[in-house]
Amino acid sequence: MNFLIAQAPATPPLNFWNGDNATAGLWIKIIIGLVLGFALMIGLLFAPTRMRRPIVVTFTFLAGLFWMVQWLWPRAGEGVTEPTNATEGVALWLKDALPVVTDFANILTAFLLGLGIYSLVSIHGKRLIKKQTDWVFSGILLLSIVIMMIFGYADWLTRLGEGAAKVELVPGFWNRGRDLLFDGMLQQMDAAMFSLIAFFILSAAYRAFRIRSIESTILLSTALIVMISIMGAIVFMLDSAAAPVSNNLKLSEIAGWITGSLQTPAIRAINFGVGVGALAMGIRLWLSLDRGGVSG
C-alpha cells in the first residue's frame, strides 16, 4: 500500500488503516474488512462449543496485549513519520492503530447502547400496553425519549459545519427547543436531584454519628473539628483566642493537621490498595484466569 501513501495529500495522514476517498485502494480495504468480518462471525457461529473458550481467551489476550504493548513500547521521536529502525516501525504502527482500536470500542459501545435503549423501551412499552401499575410514568418516559431524539437530531443538523458558530449567534426553532428541553428541564432536574444530597447528609449524619464506642468517639470528634473548620467566622474567633497561647492550638492548625497528616495518607493508602486490586483483576481478566468469578 506504499504507493497510496506516497500519492496522498498531507492531511489527513494516511496509513495502513485508511485510504483516500473514492479510490480503488480504499474500496479494496473495505471489502477485505467486510469479508474478514463476516468470515469471523460465521466461524464463531459454527465453532464447536468446546472451541468457544479458547477463541474467547485468544481474543481477550490479543486485545489486552495491544494495550500492554502500547503502554510499554518506546514512542517514536516528535515529528518522526518514516521509521528508521524496527522499534520506530512498531511505534509508528501502534500510533496509527490506536485510533482504529479506539473506534472498534466506540462502535461496539454504540451497538450496546442500542441494546440498552431496547431494554428501556421493552420494559416500559409492555407496562404501557398492559396498563400495569404506574403506566402513566412509562408513557411520559417514552414520550420524552421521542421528543428529545427529534429535537436533538434536528439541532445537530443545524450545527453541522459552520452552522455551530451561526447557531451561537442566532439560534433557530430547533435550537431553542433543544435548549428548553436540555438546559431548561433536564439540567434543572439534575440540579434538583443533586441538591437532595443536602437533606440526606443531614439525616444520615444525625442517625450515624453516635458515641457508641471509642472508635466512634474519635470519629465524631475529628468530624466536628473538620466541620467547624469550614465555618470561617468560628475559626477566626477560635484562632484569635488561641493565638496568644500557642499557634499549635489554633483550630485551623489542628484541622490542617487532621487533613494533611491523617486524612491524606489514609486516602493514599486506600488508593494504593484499590490500584493493586484493579491490577490483579486486570491481569486475571487478560489471561482469562477467572472462570466466571463467583458464579462458578
Binding site: 443531614l202 454519628f209 453516635r210 466536628l224 466541620m227 465555618m231 470561617g232 468560628i234
Partner: peptide, 16 residues
C-alpha cells in the same frame, strides 16, 4: 454554609 454546618452539628449533638 455556617448555618447549615451549625444545624448539622446541632443535629448530631441532639442525637447523642
Amino acid at each position: 454554609l455556617h448555618t447549615g454546618m451549625a444545624l448539622l452539628i446541632l443535629a448530631v449533638l441532639a442525637g447523642n
